[in-house]
Amino acid sequence: MKILIVEDEVSLQESINSYLKVEGYICESAVNYNEGEEKICMYQYDCILIDINLPDGSGLDLIKLAKSRNVSAGIIIISARETIEDRIKGLKRGADDYIVKPFHLSELNARIFSLLRRIHFKGDDQIIFKEIQVNSSERSVLINNSHLDLTKKEYDLLLYFLSNKDRVLTKESICEYLWGDFADNAGSFDFVYTHIKNLRKKIVDKGGVNYIHTMYGVGYKFVSK
């Protein structure tokens, strides 16, 4: 899977790059509009991350270009602007997703993971990890072929872990992923704990392995090995 990151902030771009590389993606980057234009025209990508504010042009124009050149690529906008107008403008141009800075790398990773699955399997895919089988069109989970009854949040949580295997996920990032803006109170971290406790219990009850490890004082990690 090839990913192009068009982001003028080198430091940000490098961070995304190094996180995604570990996930096994091949990452290329462009630091301005011209470079982005060149790469979009020359190569094929599975996913393109585009910052709207580029020093020499607008990322919105790059989206248009990418859509005409590289039809199959999924496009995610990375922007500091979060008004509805900005979002609509971006999505209208053909972007698939919109993520507002500052975001968690694990969240970006989950979004890319979900977008790529949507593109390649048209939403009718299965994520299989050892005994866990996730059917995303039905939003159902099977453990050892027996149905696992999860709440919406628990399902989202499991997907989040599956897209960020072997990563330390902080409570904040999980909280923001599950509740978005509501997660600005220390109390809500207890909710994360409760959700994870329930999810673990349900998986183990169905004979699954407890892959979710607690990293003391930091967060959680889905250990695949």
């Binding site: 902030e9 961070s15 996180y19 500091a80 800075k101 500052p102 330390v168 990032s173």
Partner: peptide
Amino acid sequence: QTPLAIIRLKCELLLQSMPLNNRQA
């Protein structure tokens, strides 16, 4: 937001760089 985003991403990368002891984490 951009510098804040950078701080956040760097912290996240730092967290992934094992082994970290509890205090550092």
